[in-house]
């Protein structure tokens, strides 16, 4: 485990809409932190030794870093696009590695078995070839042309369709998913997974969405996403080992897992190993 390389990254630590003066005690990579509003109404995050941490407020969430971020918080251009509805899904705690939570989000092959009759269903289990790359300029992992048959792809979908996905990993514990938007062909719905690493084997997950959907109520949208994520939670808490194995040999990837292969390679390259297991045990 190395904290070092990941310490300068940005992490979600709370929902802006739920902050108050009293504050919220939480943790970031084993360090207790406090997230609160100050007298001027600005978000303030305090580290374990009382120091004030760098803060950003974006995508409905408060972001903080324990170190000195060398990069600005990653951009999601769709967050400023008119006509989208922004959905704060709320926090869910999971007893798993933050990296395992992200990797599961990048996976489509589990849809028929874990999100049965919503995001997938037998016999439509085949994963077609798709494209994966590490984009050097942005330093992000991208998977594109990911296609999967889905019985109910979104709250706004009725009946089965083949959905197209694009995945993006802009930070070690964050992923952005672009997905065919049933009511608006040509546009992409944006669904994100922001993961706050509390410890190497414990995380708070903050899903967030920017959707084109004028029909569904906000509560329906929240419940749809909570349903999906809670179906994953019981998987994530039962993977052995808890930490994500970065060395080959411990787990067996196939062609369907190329996004995960690239993600693991990218983590290793940057020494993003908080929540990872390096030596096969």
């Amino acid at each position: 485990m190395t904290v070092k390389a990941m310490i300068d990254e940005w992490y979600p630590v709370g929902l802006l809409s739920q902050l108050d003066l009293k504050g919220r005690k939480t943790a970031l990579m084993d360090e207790p932190i406090d997230v609160a509003l100050d007298a001027d109404g600005n978000a303030r995050v305090t580290g374990g030794n009382g120091r004030t941490l760098p803060v950003r407020v974006r995508y409905g969430h408060v972001w903080a870093s324990l170190g000195e971020p060398k990069k600005e918080l990653f951009d999601i251009p769709e967050a400023d696009q008119p006509g989208r509805r922004f959905v704060d899904v709320g926090v869910v705690r999971v007893r798993c590695s933050p990296l395992r939570a992200v990797e599961n989000f990048l996976d489509i092959a589990h849809f028929p078995f874990v999100h049965t009759d919503i995001l997938g269903a037998e016999p439509h289990t085949e994963v077609q070839n798709y494209k994966v790359e590490i984009r050097e300029e942005e330093d992000e992992v991208w998977a594109t042309q990911v296609k999967f048959y889905q019985p109910q792809a979104a709250k706004s979908a009725s009946g089965g369709i083949t959905t197209e996905y694009m995945y993006r990993v802009p930070a070690p514990t964050c992923s952005v998913l672009y997905k065919t938007c049933p009511p608006r062909p040509g546009e992409w719905d944006v669904i994100t997974l922001f993961v706050q690493p509390l410890a190497e084997d414990l995380c708070d997950v903050w899903p967030w969405m920017a959707l084109f959907d004028d029909e569904s109520s906000m509560t329906d949208l929240i419940h749809f996403q909570q349903t999906i994520f809670l179906q994953d939670r019981s998987i994530l808490e039962n993977q052995i080992p808890r930490l994500l194995p970065l060395d080959p040999g411990m787990e067996i990837p196939t062609r369907a897992d190329l996004t995960s292969v690239a993600y693991r390679r990218w983590l290793k390259r940057h020494n993003y190993t908080y929540g990872a297991q390096l030596v096969a045990q």
Binding site: F113, V114, T116, D117, E122, T125, T227, L230, R233, S234
Partner: peptide, 18 residues
């Protein structure tokens, strides 16, 4: 009827034929 956290009993359906 299921709810999140209670998975489908997939064995109740036969294995799809390929």
């Amino acid at each position: 009827l299921e709810m999140p956290g209670i998975h489908r009993l997939h064995e109740l359906k036969p294995e799809p034929h390929v």
